[in-house]
């Protein structure tokens, strides 16, 4: 017994080693350099170079200058997560309980979009929502949209794009959770005077909470930092924080501000996730 325990210890370290090396090289070191860059002197540039001056005011300036983008990111990602949850829950429930022998095929279809590139799929939304596209024409015909109304380059288009792109990340954990629910529990709730609606909220929903929590996290976190959807479907009026960071890094070459924004975004997400998981009572998930 003691021998196996000892050997297990060594095996554990050996198995951990490749990932640790990988993470140190490609996460910890870059993260350290990001952190350092966020404290460089803000008047530095590519020509003059940067010096470490522990410029904490970088953070303050970043928040002052870009808080609308922060709020916008949170709101857009929040809406996208909400829509994903509604669509994804219905879909996952149907696949888990109602699809019978089509279950595997349905799951493949959920993952199918991953077979084409993220960029191509988002570009195709540009066609769908375009000013002469089917959607806009139909909505104009129905007078839901004015004659000059458009969808592309609006917050609506960005949220739609985010919802579409992150839906599978919601569906899969939800499916895994709902599929595990013993259908007899739902029958038992009906037998015990819960009509289908009450039964759903008293049995199915609480039992699927682990899937709801992981699904919303997997959707919300990447959606907050996403910039592709906004880049392609949004306008300068809809800029999200991801776009700001991207343009500060690649166009303005303002590394300290970009780094500070990245660090703030990261901290914000970590705090929100901890708070959320605590509230959902699913700490054991992490």
């Amino acid at each position: 017994m003691s021998e196996t325990v000892r050997r297990k210890g060594i095996t554990g370290y050996i198995l951990l080693a490749p990932a640790v090396v990988w993470l140190v090289a490609f996460f910890l070191i870059p993260f350290y350099s990001l952190l350092a860059a966020s404290l460089f002197n803000s008047d530095g540039s590519d020509f003059r170079g940067y010096t470490m001056t522990y410029e904490w005011s970088n953070y303050w300036h970043a928040i002052q200058d870009y808080y609308p983008q922060f709020i916008r990111s949170l709101v857009y990602a929040g809406f996208a997560t909400f829509f994903c949850l509604i669509l994804g829950y219905v879909l996952a429930y149907a696949i888990a309980f109602k699809s019978g022998r089509w279950k595997n095929l349905m799951l493949v279809l959920v993952i199918a979009p991953f077979f084409t590139s993220f960029l191509v799929r988002t570009l195709s939304w540009k066609l769908i929502l375009g000013n002469d596209g089917v959607v806009v024409n139909t909505l104009q015909f129905l007078h839901i949209l004015g004659p000059n109304g458009h969808l592309l380059y609006t917050p609506f288009a960005v949220v739609m794009g985010l919802t579409y792109n992150f839906l599978p990340f919601m569906v899969l954990p939800l499916f895994a959770s709902i599929d595990k629910i013993d259908y007899r529990l739902i029958e038992a709730s009906n037998d015990l005077y819960a009509n289908p609606v009450v039964g759903f909220f008293k049995v199915t929903w609480p039992l699927s909470l682990p899937g709801v929590v992981s699904g919303t996290l997997l959707t919300f976190i990447p959606a907050v930092g996403d910039y592709i959807n906004d880049e392609l479907l949004g306008s300068t009026q809809t800029r999200m924080i991801g776009n700001t960071i991207q343009s500060l890094f690649t166009e303005a070459n303002d590394y300290p501000a970009a780094s500070a924004l990245s660090v703030i975004l990261m901290l914000m997400i970590v705090v929100m996730v901890l708070f959320y998981v605590k509230r959902a009572g699913t700490e054991d998930l992490l």
Binding site: D182, R184, L185, E187, A188, N190, D191, L192, Y193, A194, N195, G199
Partner: peptide
């Protein structure tokens, strides 16, 4: 409907 019947069940494997 099952939730309106004055009937209750002890399920196999209890549920």
């Amino acid at each position: 409907k099952p939730y309106r019947r004055p009937v209750n069940t002890v399920f196999q494997n209890y549920a």
